[in-house]
Simulated assay, not measured.
Amino acid sequence: MIELRSSGELDALREAGRVVAQALAAVREHTAVGVRCAELDAVAREVLDGAGAVPAGWAPRSGAGAIGTSVNDAVLGGVPDGTRLCDGDLVGVVCGARLQGWCAAAAVTVPVGASAAVDLVGTGQAALADGIAAARAGGRVGDVAHAVGVVLRGGGFGVPAGLGGVGRAVRAAPFVPRVGRPGRGAPLRPGMVVVIDPVLLAGGGDAVDADVEGVVRTRDGSCAVHVGHMVAVTERGPRVLTAP
């Protein structure tokens, strides 16, 4: 069921989103060669604790951290552990926070050291920006998916199917695909909240597989980029709820 939120509810979601943005900014600042993924998790948890928020349960299994850290060929599902980041790595970070009953989540991908993947991240961010711009009342979910897909496919990148985003209740309707046809899908109405989270696979293929630990990885071993924001559809245009 697709829920429409009042202006007050959107403000509450925005407060949760602000905490997520602060946590991701702190993680980005702390990301460096030699840093362990568990250290990044501690940085994010400190931000959440300071704001009175709790992790929103971004991962499907218990015992996960305040963030997810997916390195290089990992697309989603990585639990922050003792892995040390190396020069040239690419680490995708998902953070979800629950504040006063409201859940927000967002994703960034951060190049480590002298990573050659800066352009990959830029493409993901460009797809995200175009998707957000298309999230306007009177349009449809397919318009957003199409805007994202044009950028990703235009760059020659792979785009995995599924891998639903996180939202109000960690996973909430409507799901926004990363490739779609304009004019299709659920109508975009004021008060609707969507998660727009482009994923690109550098190798060009779309195939991904889950390993024995539940981490989704590119089948060809190429790097993945995952970026995303929670966005509200309003009469005045898109409102990014997880912006800094």
Rank of each mutant, 00 (worst) to 15 (best):
M1A: 13
R5D: 09
S7W: 12
A12M: 01
R14S: 14
G17V: 06
G17T: 09
V20Q: 05
Q22N: 11
A25R: 13
A25Q: 06
A26S: 15
H30G: 06
T31C: 10
V33Y: 10
R36E: 14
E39A: 14
D41W: 05
A42R: 13
A44S: 04
A44C: 04
E46W: 03
G50L: 04
G50Y: 05
G52H: 02
G52L: 07
V54Q: 10
A56D: 05
A59C: 09
A66P: 07
G68E: 13
G68L: 11
S70P: 00
S70Q: 04
S70F: 02
V71S: 07
A74M: 04
V75S: 02
G77Y: 02
P80M: 00
P80H: 01
D81A: 13
R84P: 12
L85R: 02
L85Q: 00
C86D: 12
D89V: 02
G92F: 04
V93S: 02
C95P: 04
Q100H: 14
Q100K: 13
W102D: 08
W102L: 07
C103E: 15
C103T: 14
T109K: 07
V110Y: 06
P111K: 09
V112M: 00
G113V: 06
G113Q: 01
S115H: 01
D119A: 14
D119M: 00
L120Y: 08
Q125I: 01
L128D: 08
A129D: 10
I132D: 01
A133F: 05
A137R: 05
G139S: 08
R140I: 03
R140P: 02
G142F: 06
G142I: 00
V144N: 02
A145D: 03
A147L: 03
V148K: 04
G149W: 01
G149V: 09
V150E: 14
V150G: 00
G162Y: 00
L163P: 06
V166L: 15
V166E: 12
V166D: 05
G167H: 03
V170C: 03
A172F: 10
A173I: 02
P174S: 05
V176E: 08
P177K: 04
G180A: 06
R181E: 14
P182G: 00
R184A: 15
P187Q: 08
V193D: 03
V193I: 14
V193C: 07
V193M: 07
V193N: 11
V194E: 07
V195E: 13
V195T: 15
P198S: 00
L200T: 09
L200H: 12
G204T: 12
G205M: 10
G205V: 14
A210K: 03
D211P: 08
V215H: 01
V215W: 06
V216M: 10
T218A: 15
A224Q: 08
H226I: 02
H229D: 15
M230Q: 15
M230G: 11
V231W: 09
A232C: 10
T234N: 09
R236M: 11
G237E: 12
V240K: 09
A243E: 13
